[in-house]
Simulated assay, not measured.
Amino acid sequence: MLNRRQTLLGIGTFAGLASTLPAAAAQGPLKVVATTGMIADAARQIGGAEVEVVALMGAGVDPHAYRQTRSDIAAMTRADLVLWHGLYLEAQMEDFFHALARKRKVVAVAEATPKDLLRRHDDYADKYDPHVWMSPRMWTYVVAEVARALTQARPEAAGIFDTNLTRHLGELDRLSAYGQQIVSDVPQDNRVLVTAHDAFGYFGRDYGFEVLGLQGISTQSEAGLNRIGTLVDILVARQIGAVFVETSVADRSMRALIEGAGAKGHDVVIGGELFSDAMGADGTYEATYIGMLDHNFTTIAGALGADVPVGGMDGKLGAGH
Rank of each mutant, 00 (worst) to 15 (best):
209 F>Q: 09
205 R>C: 02
223 A>L: 02
210 E>N: 09
233 D>G: 10
208 G>P: 00
255 R>T: 15
268 V>R: 14
207 Y>W: 11
227 R>K: 06
246 E>C: 11
219 T>Y: 00
238 R>V: 03
240 I>T: 13
222 E>Y: 00
252 R>S: 07
214 L>W: 07
236 V>S: 06
208 G>S: 04
230 T>Q: 15
212 L>Y: 13
234 I>A: 04
229 G>L: 03
231 L>Y: 05
259 E>W: 06
237 A>G: 13
207 Y>D: 05
243 V>H: 06
209 F>V: 02
247 T>V: 13
216 G>D: 07
209 F>H: 10
220 Q>C: 00
218 S>H: 05
239 Q>H: 15
214 L>P: 09
212 L>T: 13
237 A>H: 11
212 L>S: 08
252 R>P: 00
239 Q>E: 14
250 A>Y: 01
268 V>G: 10
261 A>N: 11
230 T>E: 15
207 Y>V: 13
222 E>P: 00
244 F>H: 12
216 G>N: 08
209 F>S: 04
248 S>R: 07
213 G>C: 12
213 G>I: 06
230 T>Y: 14
247 T>F: 01
209 F>R: 06
238 R>Y: 10
226 N>V: 09
253 S>A: 11
237 A>I: 03
233 D>C: 01
225 L>K: 13
257 L>R: 12
206 D>G: 08
211 V>Y: 04
242 A>D: 02
229 G>T: 05
220 Q>H: 00
221 S>G: 01
224 G>E: 07
231 L>F: 10
243 V>R: 03
229 G>H: 05
268 V>M: 12
267 D>I: 13
219 T>A: 01
239 Q>T: 03
246 E>A: 07
216 G>S: 12
211 V>K: 10
230 T>G: 13
263 A>N: 14
220 Q>P: 00
225 L>D: 11
255 R>W: 11
256 A>Y: 02
212 L>P: 13
206 D>I: 11
218 S>F: 00
240 I>M: 09
258 I>L: 12
211 V>T: 13
217 I>F: 10
233 D>N: 06
256 A>V: 10
259 E>L: 11
258 I>W: 03
209 F>L: 10
241 G>E: 08
259 E>Y: 08
217 I>S: 02
209 F>N: 03
234 I>Q: 12
224 G>Q: 03
237 A>N: 12
266 H>W: 14
235 L>A: 04
222 E>L: 03
218 S>D: 07
252 R>A: 09
210 E>H: 08
214 L>N: 04
238 R>K: 05
242 A>C: 06
258 I>N: 08
257 L>G: 08
255 R>M: 14
224 G>W: 01
216 G>I: 01
259 E>P: 15
235 L>D: 13
246 E>F: 13
226 N>R: 13
207 Y>Q: 06
257 L>N: 07
227 R>P: 06
210 E>W: 05
256 A>T: 13
239 Q>A: 15
219 T>N: 02
222 E>A: 03
229 G>Q: 09
218 S>I: 02
221 S>K: 00
217 I>P: 09
253 S>G: 11
210 E>M: 10
224 G>Y: 00
206 D>A: 15
213 G>H: 05
225 L>A: 15
247 T>S: 14
